[in-house]
């Protein structure tokens, strides 16, 4: 859904859902994940529907991701770091994938 407006100079490598990805340095985790082409970042714990970042300013909590083993992190408020391990919170039937 999103792509970079210009080629970025500095990048870092994150591990997203187990796969290494090069993303621009200095951006938020939410932006980085959207930039990789992912359309959603989690599924609702209640309805199972896919959800994606909505406000990008720390209000809506739709961008919750597991970052470096800590679940339910507001990914729009966290900057990417080299080697960061990020997992989308995708659940089916109440169990985590």
């Amino acid at each position: 859904m999103f792509s970079s407006y210009e080629t970025t100079k500095q990048t870092v490598t994150i591990i997203l859902d187990g796969k290494p990805q090069r993303v621009p340095a200095g951006v938020s985790v939410a932006a980085a994940v959207l930039g990789t082409g992912k359309t959603h970042t989690r599924t609702s714990l209640i309805s199972g529907e896919p959800r994606a970042p909505f406000c990008m300013m720390g209000v809506c909590y739709e961008c919750l991701l597991e970052i470096d083993s800590r679940k339910d992190q507001q990914s729009c408020q966290v900057q990417v770091k080299e080697g960061m391990i990020i997992n989308r919170q995708i659940r089916t039937n109440g169990e985590e994938k």
Binding site: F2, S3, S4, Y5, S28, L34, F54, M56, M57
Partner: peptide, 17 residues
Amino acid sequence: VMSAGGANNLIKNGGLV
């Protein structure tokens, strides 16, 4: 579906379009 401000933040913070 995203807030327009959110899309704007993606330009400022991620250089994403």
